[in-house]
Design a binder for these strands. Structure first.
Length: 284
DNA sequence: CCGGATGTTCACCT
DNA sequence: GAGGTGAACATCCG
């Protein structure tokens, strides 16, 4: 999510410019039934009105009729709004504007930008280019993604909203709240809380002194408030530092790694389907 | 050479 | 219904 926030800031440079070309270099990047021609027809001639982010998803709202639609329907320009483009980045997707990556280096991504890993590029005013770069091809773009399926953004979530994200029922489901799942699994569930990835989850839980496999519903009020405090602070601090790989625990995520706080040897386990490193000495 | 890695989705279990 | 597991995606790195 921190990385996506950097992409959003970079992408905001092209907001308001006219889309003069769309090139789909790898159709694999298009979600579901979307075809390259759909994307090109929907976007060319329009402009993005916003570059906004919820969790790990970058959204571009568009405005004005596309050139094709105007030609086809003879409609007057810009009175309706266009589709919203959504980008998800998988593990190695990133945004490049005019050849400049948002970050110098990303964990597990190749150190250098390689043109062969550009899966999509959008040209603005015949001059500027926003590209989606993705060596592992897990990034996807889609139109009009269901935003209801994303929980509140972790960077701004309130303590009360965090509590219901962890223990509440998920709309539109009915019935009693369930809270048997592991705390970390709930934190990673994007439909409950948007934006927390595996590294960030471990760092936050370590700072909040909470064991990742605690049932989410077992947290006392003061523990939820503590989690909330550390969650907000960690997101802000790692954003400042340069990404989710800049946490204090990062260097110890290996066999024999020790807790930077108390020196206890870290445990490696699987929680919520993801590799989890945590300190049995102070996380309870 | 092997295993595992910032993520999401889906099929298939219990 | 809830929750867990494993696969798939494709490439790089230790």
């Amino acid at each position: 999510m921190l990385e996506v926030e950097y992409y959003r800031r970079l992408a905001s440079e092209v907001v308001g410019l006219t889309i003069t070309g769309v090139s789909v270099d790898d159709p694999h990047a298009l979600a579901g039934p979307l075809r390259p021609s759909d994307l090109i027809r929907a976007l060319e001639g329009r402009s993005f009105t916003t570059a906004r982010r919820t969790g790990k998803v970058l959204f571009f709202d568009s405005s004005g009729d596309s050139a094709t639609n105007e030609r086809e329907r003879g409609a007057p320009a810009s009175r309706g709004s266009g589709p919203t483009l959504a980008m998800r980045f998988g593990m190695t997707g990133s945004v490049i504007v005019d050849g400049h990556p948002a970050l110098d280096r990303l964990l597990y991504a190749p150190a250098h930008v390689d043109p062969k890993w550009i899966v999509l590029s959008i040209e603005f005013d015949d001059t500027f280019t926003l590209a989606l770069h993705d060596p592992r091809r897990m990034a996807r773009v889609a139109f009009n993604l269901d935003e209801e399926r994303l929980g509140p953004d972790a960077a701004t979530v309130s303590a009360a909203a965090l509590r219901s994200a962890l223990t509440g029922r998920l709309p539109p489901r009915r019935g009693p709240a369930t809270s048997g799942a592991a705390l970390k699994a709930r934190m990673l569930d994007q439909s409950r809380l948007a934006g927390i990835g595996n590294l960030l989850a471990d760092e936050i839980l370590w700072r909040a002194s909470l064991a990742p496999d605690r049932p989410a519903g077992s947290l006392a009020d003061h523990e939820i408030r503590r989690l909330h405090r550390h969650l907000r602070a960690t997101v802000a601090e790692l954003l400042e530092r340069g990404g989710s790989h800049t946490g204090n625990l990062m260097g110890e995520r290996r066999r024999g790694g020790r807790c930077p706080l108390d020196g206890t040897e870290l445990l490696r386990s699987t929680v919520g389907g993801r590799t989890t490193w945590w300190c049995p000495g102070h996380q309870h």
